[in-house]
């Protein structure tokens, strides 16, 4: 059967266009149209669930209980603040005591010097 040149050209155009689509074109279109199938998400959930070892809930409860028994950050902070305040008070008290002792020593020395000076004055007269 003879075909005219125009029909031949259309046939070639269709063949060329079809060859550009590639072999997996229908699958690709279906995949893009439907996206990720729900069974892939289900499989993901199953793999994740399998990665939890048996007795997971018991381990979580035990770990939570252990953490509850540990002192909280707040109480640790309060204890640190209390310790720092006690140390500061001790330093101030010690400093105050040392200052008072030094004053007493200085006064006694002055009294001794004054007494010595008075003695010298009395001797000179």
């Amino acid at each position: 059967m003879k075909t005219n040149p125009e029909e031949n050209a259309w046939f070639r155009l269709r063949a060329h266009a079809a060859s550009r689509l590639g072999g997996a074109f229908p699958d690709r279109v279906l995949r893009l149209a439907h996206g990720c199938p729900p069974r892939a998400w289900q499989r993901l959930g199953c793999v994740a669930a399998d990665s939890l070892r048996p007795g997971f809930a018991e381990r979580v409860i035990a770990a939570a209980r252990e953490r509850l028994e540990l002192p909280s950050y707040g109480s640790q902070l309060a204890l640190s603040a209390l310790t720092a305040a006690a140390c500061l008070a001790a330093v101030i008290l010690f400093h105050h005591h040392e200052l008072a002792a030094a004053d007493a020593r200085n006064l006694a020395e002055w009294r001794r010097i004054v007494a010595a000076a008075q003695d010298l004055d009395a001797g000179a007269r």
Binding site: G45, V47, A48, A49, S51, L52, A57, I61
Partner: peptide, 15 residues
Amino acid sequence: LIVAYQHRVAGFVFA
């Protein structure tokens, strides 16, 4: 509660 939600949370974490 943990038993009821552990698998769903695991799936979420894996994703």
